[in-house]
Design a protein around this nucleic acid. Sequence first.
DNA 1: ATAAGTTGATATTTATAAATGTCAACAATA
DNA 2: TATTGTTGACATTTATAAATATCAACTTAT
Lengths: 149, 149
Amino acid sequence: MEQINIGYDEPIFPISAAAKLLNISVHTLRMYEREGLFIPYKKDSNQRLFSKSDISRIECIRKAINEAKISINGIKMIYSMIPCWEILKCSEKDRKNCQSMNNSHEPCWMHDHSKNKCKTIDCRSCEVYSKYSECGQIKELIKTITKQK
Amino acid sequence: MEQINIGYDEPIFPISAAAKLLNISVHTLRMYEREGLFIPYKKDSNQRLFSKSDISRIECIRKAINEAKISINGIKMIYSMIPCWEILKCSEKDRKNCQSMNNSHEPCWMHDHSKNKCKTIDCRSCEVYSKYSECGQIKELIKTITKQK
DNA sequence: ATAAGTTGATATTTATAAATGTCAACAATA
DNA sequence: TATTGTTGACATTTATAAATATCAACTTAT
């Protein structure tokens, strides 16, 4: 998908700026990351930088937790339902070596990727991860897939 | 003649028996129902009766809540992702009048069904509802659909 | 060179979802 | 007809997820 806003995926905000934009604490952001809800860019020095798309992704996560009352583990479960194998057109062999295909309840970007197609891909720029920075798109994807037939 | 083999889907247990089988309270069962996590059979007098498949469904719900730590609203969201329109082969017109197709975050069996295909169907015996009495089958369904390509 | 910000790890607090308790009217059972 | 169970509505308790706090070592900026 063509990005209209050039700087949308550019990692520019340090964690405190991101926290201010989101009106949450730095702690909470780091907790969400530890749970695998998002993957921030990291500098060589290990410091995090957030893009605008990261911010909007986290806004969705916040809404899910605080308004829709979906627990963090629930969100992880929902992310785990994204059919990444379909999006990336994985081979049969790749699918065999893929945790996402084996009843994982965690987002694919939390998995060990050393044995399949994903080993060469940076999850942050992977379509599976980046396409779902906006809310409600996972069900839309399921709808799209069921229309293809 | 005594009936030895009681059907898996036969509603036979009153709520207190179901509660004992599940080792939870009657209150909790009624709460789950109010949330739409399951639909028990109801007698003319309005009393609930549970089948063995109801029991096993609720065991799954329990595991999701207590072990996987998925909140009730999270479970509802996950149920809402079942592509019922595909399972029931709904027409375009039915899909237009269907809440499941319009970003609902609740299970399809909680919807108003007066305007689409479902109006003639008892949700308890609908494939969409009954096929997912066992855990982990929703992601399996997504996998199946993506294999049809 | 000093202040301000970030790191991960562990501990603690708070907000609230999940589970129970209580009630009076009604249904079943025996 | 007496007992035992079920109903829904509302109130309360409990368990714990989510959010903060604290820390010492390290990084960035002025």
